[in-house]
């Protein structure tokens, strides 16, 4: 084994991971899909969505925030964990207001795609029918709070040129919500709107104009199950 590489085990399969990687990254490199919503590329992991819940020994941990260690044994695809993830997805669906057929993100939305993957038919929890706002006051960006899942990807990933925060969490508990500092001149730019739309896993941040350029039916998850791109690599590893 190369220097800086260690062995871990996911669902009985032994894989080689790089030291310092999260379980999610190590799994992905080896063609194993662990579902994520809040984890995004190189952003500092937040651990808000808990979709990546796995079992390490007797403990349940979020795989995006947990660093691999030599000999670690991870349970990922068990019936129990799949059921748990489906429940978490359902919780998000009843917490916000998700009218997929009229949503600009439909087909590119990771929440929707995970719901398909985990075969959610209808949520088993009562809908909250919460009242949330749509903020379309910025020239290029619409913030559709009804669809926000509070993943913090925008807060962590969309910053002003000098690195300061434009997005942030406001309030706490059930009232927690994302907010954009509309007094910040950069928040009004097209660049930021594009970045925000690209980083948001759902349809909560939408760039005005052109949202339907790719027709529904031809979008990313319309034709492939989320995670299948990762799993395709599995045989090659």
């Amino acid at each position: 084994m190369e220097q800086g590489h260690i062995k871990i085990n996911i669902d009985g399969r032994e894989i080689i991971a790089k030291e310092g990687q999260s379980i999610v990254q190590a799994a992905r490199d080896n063609g194993i899909f662990i579902p994520t919503l809040c984890d995004f590329k190189s952003l500092q992991p937040a651990g808000t969505c808990r979709m990546c819940l796995v079992k390490v020994g007797e403990r349940y941990v979020s795989a995006c925030t947990t660093i691999v260690s030599q000999g670690m044994s991870v349970e990922n695809e068990s019936v129990e964990l799949k059921e748990n993830r489906k429940s978490l997805i359902e919780m998000l669906f009843v917490e916000g207001n998700h009218m997929c057929p009229s949503c600009e993100k439909s087909g590119n939305c990771q929440l929707q795609a995970l719901a398909y993957r985990y075969q959610m038919t209808a949520p088993r929890y009562p809908f909250s029918f919460t009242q949330r706002k749509i903020d379309a006051s910025l020239p290029y960006l619409v913030v559709e709070h009804n669809r926000c899942i509070q993943c913090l990807r925008c807060v962590r990933g969309v910053k002003a040129k000098d690195g300061h925060d434009i997005f942030g969490f406001i309030d706490r508990g059930g009232a927690i919500h994302i907010s954009v500092d509309t007094t910040d001149t950069e928040a009004a730019t097209e660049v930021i709107a594009q970045k925000a739309m690209d980083i948001c896993p759902v349809g909560a941040l939408i760039k005005k104009g052109g949202a339907y350029r790719v027709p529904i039916g031809e979008r990313k998850y319309d034709n492939e199950v989320i995670g299948s791109d990762v799993e395709k690599e599995r045989d090659k590893v």
Binding site: T48, R50, M91, E95, Q150, R172, G173, I176
Partner: peptide, 21 residues
Amino acid sequence: FTKETCGFCVPCRAGNTLLLK
């Protein structure tokens, strides 16, 4: 608990509200 959760993670924020309901 539904008042005092920080609201950061899904199970604690949404789950406790559902439990209360």
